[in-house]
Design a protein around this nucleic acid. Structure first.
Length: 638
RNA sequence: GCCGGAAUAGCUCAGUGGCAGAGCGCUCGCCUUGUAAGCGAGGGGUCGUGGGUUCAAGUCCCACUUCCGGCUCCA
């Protein structure tokens, strides 16, 4: 029966040809029974090592180092978690437990809420199962058998999942010891390889993400093949925590949130310096491209919002005011105001593109649970602009926006990723217009020459869009910029311009924000730089430190020199020891500390200490000049 | 909005039914200092808000507010 087949086994960068029986398990082609091999890939399918080799010509062995292998490892970890829960709370019902990018979770329905204190017990139960090194076995069953199995075990959520599995799909379960879970797999060969595990948090989550459905308890965890790798990961998490903009904002005196106005920022002087600096950059770059700034009302009558469509589609997210007879809404976006302005006069094709920028405050009534530091607020500012263009100008205008994004993010040393979302099912307008718009967008992207991710069918109903993720110094992605084509707003406001042949044509509106919310962007920058802002951005660039009170006057003089040269500086003239002032300067993350003692005062020099440490003694006048140069905006491609 | 947790001095936090605390910051005094914390004293709190249980509540219970972790949503 068994037939010998020749298989090319790829393992990491190496590949070797082996002759095996086609009925032998894939594990038999693993060189030296290497326990680091978790699963295998045949074609584009990831499978268990217990599967027979079959007619495969090429088998790729997957380890934790491979993204696919990692997912298997984390998925098996989720099963491990579920098994431990069932041991401690036999009445718990299983929901789902997928792998995440750097961990996994399992949603469970528990009779009692689980607290973080229970996590230690649960973790221990998981370790016990690791030590037991239970083999993990796959089993395929019929729909009826599967339903019966989970019904017998009282797993109502699993039954719901089975009922939603399309006819004809193989239904599989995985068993390890007394535990069995409905699962497509694949999994690692046994629980023993899940060596280093850690539960990180517990929270609630709706079954299937639906508010109408029961609330599940979601337990989050992560896992690694070795304790060292787990430690390294936990250190990275610590690092991210250390950079939390909310903590740094408090520590560095940048901004505050207060109960008196939840979701709105109190900017302190230092934080506002950052905010204004970032905003000024955006303004400056846009002015180069011929944008013009406008400022439009922030409160409008309901008639405007009804016309723009916000009344029907966005009302829940707006601050509404009933002022005597009038129904008013505070603006969550600038677009209706700009549309009104565009339509206020007769426009010629010669004027287009009209590019209006606005930095006005916007308000959105975010649900209370959604608020998160500067990253999600109710009152914010966008570096917003609307481009009113002729349909044939879309490509060149998009191209220009892409360059603007490059230049702005380049200043902060950040890369951006693009997601192109195309026509959804329920699109408005005619197909031809959509196809032309999408063609122009992809042409602009192609011209830009950067890879992008296509998200078919995820565009807005009024037009296709580009979303941008900025990647920070820890490799985290933040959705910031957005570019959206809009055919609906011009229609609703009956916008038009006169074409060269005298006909009236409807312009296309391009909504775009480069920083996105300035508040959010500042929050991202705080985390990106961990509060160690580059000199050009730092709210306080230099602090002068006189060593004794005898140099305090000289110190104040130096601050005057620095301020006259445009450097943001202050003096620390407290009667404290030098070491103390240096320490405080470092903790305040001041880029340069300028020490002046009797020696420096006598000969007109300064002892400079940067973040890296003592960097020597310089002539004062020359140093100020040099500092001014270092503090200039890094506009390399000016 | 929903689930879970939390709220004590300006900040970070201890206090587990019986006199409200520490470190840092702040004020004052002493010290006059050479690259990450000098010494001493002082001031500072309706223990988030409102109700309840108790002889007695920062502590236990309930409601509300805000924050944190998620869900949902999203710039």
């Amino acid at each position: 029966m068994a037939e010998a087949v020749k298989v090319l086994v790829q393992s990491g960068d190496a590949a070797e040809e082996v002759l095996v029986e086609s009925s032998a398990p894939l594990a038999s082609v693993v060189p030296g029974e290497d326990p680091a091999v978790l699963a295998a890939q045949i074609g584009d399918q990831v499978v268990d090592l217990t599967r027979p080799v079959g007619p495969a010509a090429t088998v790729r062995l997957l380890r934790f180092e491979d993204a696919e292998g990692r997912r298997v490892f984390r998925h098996s970890s989720a099963h491990l978690l579920a098994q431990a829960v069932k041991r401690l709370w036999p009445d718990a019902q299983l929901g789902t437990g997928p792998a995440l990018d750097d961990g996994y979770y399992y949603d469970l329905h528990l009779p009692e809420p689980l607290t973080e204190a229970d996590l230690a017990r649960l973790e221990q139960a998981m370790r016990d199962i690791v030590v037991e090194s239970l083999p993990i076995r796959r089993e395929e069953l019929t729909r009826e058998a599967a339903l019966q199995l989970f019904q017998a075990r009282g797993e109502s959520f699993k039954q719901q999942i089975i009922e939603r599995i399309p006819e004809g799909t193989a239904i599989s379960v995985y068993r390890q010891g007394e535990f069995v879970d409905l699962c497509a797999g694949p999994h690692v060969p046994n629980t023993g390889v899940l060596a280093a595990i850690k539960l990180t948090s517990v929270s609630g989550a709706y079954w299937r993400g639906d508010e109408q459905q029961p609330m599940m308890t979601r337990v989050y965890g992560t896992s690694f093949p070795t304790a060292e790798a787990l430690k390294a990961h936990l250190d990275r998490v610590e690092e991210a925590k250390r950079r939390d903009h909310r903590q740094l904002g408090q520590q560095l005196g940048l901004f505050q949130f207060r109960d008196e106005s939840p979701g709105f920022v109190f900017w302190l002087p230092k934080g506002l310096k950052l905010f204004r600096r970032v905003e000024a950059l955006s303004r400056w770059l846009q002015e180069q491209l011929g944008y013009e700034e406008v400022m439009t009302p922030w409160i409008y009558k309901d008639t405007l919002w009804k016309r723009s469509g916000h009344w029907d589609h966005y009302q829940d997210d707006m601050f509404l005011i009933d002022q005597r007879e009038e129904h008013l809404g505070v603006k969550p976006m600038n677009c209706p105001g700009h549309a009104v302005l565009f339509g206020s006069t007769v426009r010629s094709y010669r004027e287009l593109p009209v590019k209006w920028a606005e930095y006005s405050p916007l308000s959105r009534f975010e649900r209370s649970g959604a608020l998160h530091g500067l990253l999600r607020v109710r009152g914010f500012h966008q570096d917003d602009a609307h481009l009113f263009v002729r349909p044939q100008q879309i490509q060149e205008q998009i191209r220009e926006v892409l360059e603007l994004i490059d230049r702005l993010y380049g200043l902060f040393g950040m890369q951006v990723e693009v997601v192109f979302s195309t026509r959804p099912q329920d699109y408005l307008g005619d197909l031809e217009t959509w196809e032309d718009a999408e063609r122009q967008l992809s042409a602009a992207l192609a011209d830009w020459g950067r890879p992008y991710q296509l998200n078919p069918g995820d565009g807005a109903f009024y037009g296709p869009k580009l979303d941008f993720n900025a990647i920070d110094s820890l490799g985290r992605r933040w959705q910031t910029s957005t570019v959206q084509l809009d055919y609906q707003m011009p229609l609703r406001f009956d916008l038009s311009y006169t074409e060269s042949d005298g006909s009236r044509v409807r312009p296309v509106m391009i909504h775009r924000a480069i920083l996105g919310s300035v508040e959010r962007f500042v929050g991202i920058l705080i985390e990106h730089y961990a509060g160690d802002f580059p000199l050009w951005l730092a709210p306080l660039q230099a602090r002068v430190i006189p060593i004794t009170d005898d140099e305090a006057d000289r110190g104040r003089e130096m601050v005057r020199d620095l301020r006259a040269a445009g450097i943001r500086a202050e003096v620390d003239d407290r009667s404290e020891k030098l070491g103390k002032k240096i320490r405080d300067g470092q903790l305040d993350k001041v880029p340069v500390l300028l020490v002046v003692g009797a020696r420096e005062r006598e000969v007109g020099t300064v002892s400079v200490r940067s973040r890296a440490g003592d960097s020597g003694v310089y002539d004062w006048a020359r140093y100020v000049e040099e500092l001014v140069q270092q503090a200039a905006l890094p506009l390399a491609r000016g």
